[in-house]
Design a binder for these strands. Sequence first.
DNA 1: CGAATTTGACCTGCGC
DNA 2: GCGCAGGTCAAATTCG
Length: 447
Amino acid sequence: MDEQRCDLKYLHSDQSFLGLSTSSDHRLVEPPIKEETLFKEIKEVDFFSNNRLPDQPAPGHAELTTLQLQVELQREYEENQKLRTMLDQITKSYNGLQAQLRMIRLQEQLQICAEDSINLDPKLSFLHDDQYPKSSSHHDHDQEQVLAATDHDQVPSRRARVSVRARSEAPMIRDGCQWRKYGQKMAKGNPCPRAYYRCTMFAGCPVRKQVQRMAEDKTILITTYEGNHNHPLPAAAISMANTTSAAAAMLISGSTTSKEAHHHLTHPTGLFSSLQPLYGSSMATFSTSAPFPTITLDMTRTPNPNPNPMQFMDSSATFPNPLQGNSHPLIGHPMCLNFPQHNHAALTPAAMQLAEQPHGSMVETITAAITSDPKFTTALAAAISSRMNNVENINAGLHGNTNGISSLNSNGNGVAQHYLAPHSFLNPVPLSPPPNPACMMHGVYMQ
DNA sequence: CGAATTTGACCTGCGC
DNA sequence: GCGCAGGTCAAATTCG
Ligand SMILES: [Zn+2]
């Protein structure tokens, strides 16, 4: 607290500087510049302060000659340079501290997750819990089997769900995955039936979704996802999968530390606020109340004009590909890190095709670049990391740069480690070649 | 004819 | 224990 007051002391003339430093940062590493020095130097060039130095001439002084003014200008210019250098140093120091803080928190989470996987009850294994023992036989005694089980069933009673609301005339939103309907029920209080689907891209994929129209507004489709994919996804599916699994990870992480039943995240400083540029009134609502912790992403408002006209070419609802970008389209999806590179036996033909496609051509690369949206990526990463870290410095991920994503993304698994559900990153494996985004754009992989 | 969907039966959890 | 609601199964049916 005292240290924070020091910050205020030598930055009093410019409020925007306040965001550059936090008390927690100082706790980790000493600032490279002595505070006394800072205070002195800044005082000399504190043009906007009322407490100007006594030796400075008053405005409109009659005896000021041109020479004097030039000397004064030169002096202030030099001091300005000093100030800039100092600011650079502070910024560097701040960024370094922030990176350090992220690493520490990441390590803490890794440690927690490692402990969790060690303490796993064997009864929670994939074989016992999965409803498709035939497909599971491919994974016998594989490490990823256990990891997959931990990912979905670690806390069965609190399995997170992600609900997405989107306007769509189509019976189902295009999320890029292949689904098979396995049931339909009339839900209470809604004249529209609820349909149950399971992912069929990979035999044994535990992901399910429910699709139901809103009772009040039948043009709004409510799609609720549950579980994480354990196979590669087409680019078109990665956006939704990333969003949902990240949200689910957030939900689990957040719900364990908060006693609030609901979190409406519409405040400018709140989670997902940075999605606003893309989704006019996007709102994320956490509900940690029974029976399942659920996060609802409301995307019912028309998105802002998108740079990619293809993206919304279809009449049904589509979603951008936030984490595709210039990197591998699969990078960033938690479950991708669990996918055994060699095991294509259980892949459906469509998934096989995806997994074995060569690297994209120029057109595909461009398409991928167009369909990606760094703003969304940054925003999502910022929201997730801030939520996961459970700290006040929301400033961290929204600070102009894309540190939250790009710096960690460079090693191929940083993003996922940053916010994925626990255990997914314990066994990172090389990823299969990227699918063809151009194909996905046309809904080839949709049913 | 195989794959996907439909639909009634069945299972499970919860509140009373 | 009973009824209700949500969720899943699987035989029957439809589709391509
Ligand atoms: Zn799947």
